[in-house]
Design a protein around this nucleic acid. Structure first.
Lengths: 218, 218
DNA sequence: ACCCGGTGTTACTTACGGTAACACCGAGTC
DNA sequence: GACTCGGTGTTACCGTAAGTAACACCGGGT
């Protein structure tokens, strides 16, 4: 098991794996998250068992596929978050980066948000509580944690700062996600307007807005 | 086809439908969203074709099931939103109501958020764009729209108020959802702390928080 | 006596995830 | 040169679950 040989084999396997992932990517982009293993294998010019040898099961393949895209998106978001500008500009840039991404490739986005569709696993006994709470798309969790870390590093939030940063990280990511999802479906306004509206929300405009005439107030 | 007879038949059918829904509810609560149509039929003491006669397909059954729970949850939320108290208290009460609901019955919650698992429909040709944007759980959309309406009715947000209210409605709901999902999975703090943290976020504490020493600022 | 709509059944088809068993092939070894 | 060995590939199969005929029973109206 000397290093060079192992590397040789691994490089071959890794190249193959990348090819398979690219084929899977094409199929998922074309047919959506319901793409069958047969279809993916056909696209790659091979048959099912090979896919299973490489990825274990459908969940494994989808996880590998999702991680590629998740990593790419997170890199973009980090860049926007780290840009040299004032706080509000950075928040807006990050929101806009996310929205631009899901706008540009909605299929990828949809796949990332619903990767757990298949794979109930035949021998499913156990875990009666069926992973409540962990069901969210890994992308959302990762984005939430990432943002939480940035917030905690840079903001002085007092003694309970760490907990608060995580609450905010996940909350802001969820806000971005849900608003983006709705916006993508209905296109009720321009991207810039959406970004501005969300930033206003985060900047506390909800708290200071005046009551409307005639109502009991909000 | 006189009215009384029709009503007679309909009432019988409706009662049956409710019974079936309750059986389905028990199974879904016990086995999660992967419950098979066979299992549901067995729980109801009948066989599959009857389910299909009543609900069309699995998606139909799940939609009917989801609507019951969604309606119930929305009623609670409306009550919290309409309570006579100042704005911040009401926001906190609404957040707390939602979190209490998902905490009390996580299985229901999980089911509501992922109702579209099955039903790719065999004759799936067409809709190549596969409903991007509409994939979200109907519950999230309904909550977003509902909140948007309340905001728009009660707050004076200037000329673009309507659009802004919808952006905020969906954004806030998404924030609540993602934070609640994360919280339910990790239980990093008490419910009250979470509520307080999210309300602080909505009240603009992000904007006014001080930079941490040593960093370039957020 | 006869039909008819509603409720129910059994038995089937189709599709898909996943697996077992076998075939080929190139590289290193005696 | 025959021989094993790991990797790549195949065909053929199993189990499960959605969805669909086709048939059976039963009560009431004509």
């Amino acid at each position: 098991m000397d290093t060079t040989q192992r590397t040789e084999q691994q490089r071959s396997a890794d190249r193959r794996r990348r090819e398979l992932l690219e084929a899977a990517d094409r199929v998922v982009l074309r047919e959506g998250p319901h793409a069958s293993m047969n279809a993916i294998a056909a696209e790659a010019g091979i048959t099912k068992p090979i896919l299973y040898r490489h990825f274990g099961d459908k969940g494994g393949l989808y996880a590998a596929l999702a991680q590629r895209h998740t990593d790419a998106l997170l890199d973009s978001l980090r860049a926007a978050l780290d840009a040299p500008a004032e706080r509000r500009r950075r928040v807006e840039a990050t929101l806009d980066t996310y929205l631009a991404a899901i706008e540009a490739r909605p299929q990828v986005y949809r796949f990332l948000m619903h990767p757990a569709e298949g794979a109930p696993a035949p021998g499913d006994q156990g875990e009666q509580g069926f992973d409540v709470g962990k069901h969210s798309a890994p992308l959302l969790r990762r984005m939430g944690e990432e943002l939480a870390q940035v917030i905690e590093e840079r903001l002085d939030l007092g003694p309970a700062g760490q907990r608060l940063a995580r609450v905010w990280g996940h909350g802001i990511v969820g806000m971005m996600h849900a608003a983006g999802d709705w916006w993508l479906g209905e296109r009720p306004c321009s991207r810039a307007e959406l970004v501005h509206g969300l930033a206003d929300l985060l900047w506390g405009r909800l708290a200071v807005a005046g009551d409307r005439a005639g109502g009991p107030g909000f």
